[in-house]
Every structure is written in C-alpha cells, then in structure tokens.
Write a protein that binds this DNA or RNA. Structure first.
Lengths: 137, 137
DNA sequence: TTTAAACCCTATAAAAAAGATAGGGTTTAT
DNA sequence: ATAAACCCTATCTTTTTTATAGGGTTTAAA
C-alpha cells in the first residue's frame, strides 16, 4: 500500500493539475481541501520540488505550481520519490538495490528471477499511468 | 516491498517445493537453511497451513509439506496472506476495502479510478506467477 | 522600506507496524 | 514412556511512519 506521503503527494499534484490556470497555489489551500497537516504537506511539496516536478514562488502572492505536463508525471516517479522502491524485493530493485540477507546466491535464487519479471511488468503499468490519467477521470 | 514474513514464506514454500519427495520437512531445516528464527518461521508456516497451502504432521518424523501443486499457488495468494492488500490504496482493495480519509467522493476521485486499473493489471501479474515459476528457475 | 505572506530548514516526538522472543501445552511415532 | 515436533498466547524491541514545533529566510506589494 502507498504511504500517506505518497497519497498526499498524489492529491496535491491532482490539485495543482486542476488549478494550472492560476499562477500559483497555496499549501494552505491544498492542505485544507484534503484535511492534511500544513507542515507535513510542506515537506512533501518540497520533495516534489527537489525532484523537479514542481516550481515555487516565494513572497506575497507566491505558492506552488506544476512545472511538468501532467502526461510527463508517471505514477512510478511519484511513488519512488516518496515511498521508495517499486520492486517487491531489495535484490531486484533498479533504484534501491540491496542484496537479500536470506539469499545465498542471487544467481541460483528462483524468487529473485521471478521478482525481476514482476518488477518489469509492474513498472510498465506505473510508468504508463500518469497524472494526466488521474485528471481525466 | 514485501515484508520479511512474506519473503520468509516464499523461501519456505520454495524449500518445501524442492523437497516434495520427502514426506515432511522440519521447520528447523528451513529455518537453518535461510537463517530465520525458528519461532518466527513457525508462525508463518502456521498461517500458510491455516490458508490451506500446507499440511503438517505431528510427532516424531513429523513436519510440514505442500498440500497444493506449485502451479496452484500464485504469488497473489501468499502476499495477501502475509502482507495484506495488493491494491495501492485501501479504497480500491478487493479483499481489504476501506474508504480513504482524504477523499471526499470516491466517485469523483481520479486517483481512485486510476488505482483500480493499476490494481487489476497488477493482479494479473501476481495471479499469473506461481510457486512453479520460482521452482523452475 | 516595512511588513505580511509564504517558502525553507532542523530537530524532536508520538503512534503504528514489523520483527522477534519466550515459554509452555499438546500430539504422536517410536 | 518419552522425545520429537507441532500448536498457542503473550510480551517486548526495533524500525518506520506520521506527524509537530519553532524558528529563519525570501520576496511582493503597500
């Protein structure tokens, strides 16, 4: 399951996507709309900004705005950013690889082999669905 | 990512699958092979038994054994059993449904819509991959 | 140029989930 | 009879998640 961070991120991105005509959107407004803690949401938006999905403007009249087109923001990107690996095991993660403690040999491990396949197929799904799909509902 | 419980369960099932010729397999042997706590593994095997995947035999010479054919044990079954929902959000879970706190209306929620599609496609993958695939490596 | 609105940063803490341990009871093959 | 192995319940530790707090910095507009 997705963490609340990722869930909130998706809600925020959706909100920003719906308000693209406005130059900026206030954290406050997003937080209020979805009943999220202002400060917690702030951290999330900062991460999305660091990752290049959002831009922000300081000072009076400032706020956040989408920097990418919704169709260029796949779910895989958002999930990886806030929740980490998409792979089901560390030993098959592309972005967060770690060896498995229980595995004596990855080469001989059938679980490893299957999980690589699962990872690839799952990635196809999550790279294919974008913020655009959410906005289109 | 999968919890250790699920990971251990997959290792145990694999071990049992490889030793199907023997009538029973000792918890001890599986635990030792993969460096898992005996007691922790015991709990997991009990869950697999309750779910109808394993049988057990008490007394001297007893142990656990596979009750189903490997091709009839999909990853989805094991994951749901030990880790819970496969869906990314509670509001789209088939087996563990709960409404989302942040969502005002599921019907209007684009995230919900997309996650239903993700769930269905993910399920296809996880129902299609079975213990047999792991054993075949 | 002041000031209010909003972003930015660090540290800490509460709550929940995961992971593991302990200890004893019951069953059964030899 | 007894040792080997399954079965059950409760507790505890660690890690991760989910926040909260408080203050500093930047900037647009009056």
């Amino acid at each position: 399951m997705l963490s609340k961070k990722t869930k909130y991120a998706l809600h925020a991105l959706t909100y920003l996507g719906k308000h693209r005509e406005e130059k900026t959107v206030l954290i406050h407004d997003i937080a209020e709309e979805h009943g999220i803690s202002h400060k917690f949401l702030e951290n999330i938006l900062l991460e999305l900004k660091k990752a290049g999905l959002l831009g922000s403007k300081k000072g009076k009249g400032g706020g956040y705005y989408l920097i990418k087109e919704p169709q260029d923001i796949p779910l895989s990107k958002v999930i990886r950013l806030l929740d980490g690996p998409i792979a089901l095991l560390p030993c098959v993660s592309l972005n967060y690889y770690e060896p498995c403690a229980e595995c004596k040999s990855e080469v001989e491990c059938g679980i490893n082999k299957v999980m690589i396949q699962v990872r690839d197929e799952t990635l196809k799904i999550l790279e294919n669905k974008t913020l655009q799909d959410i906005l289109e509902k």
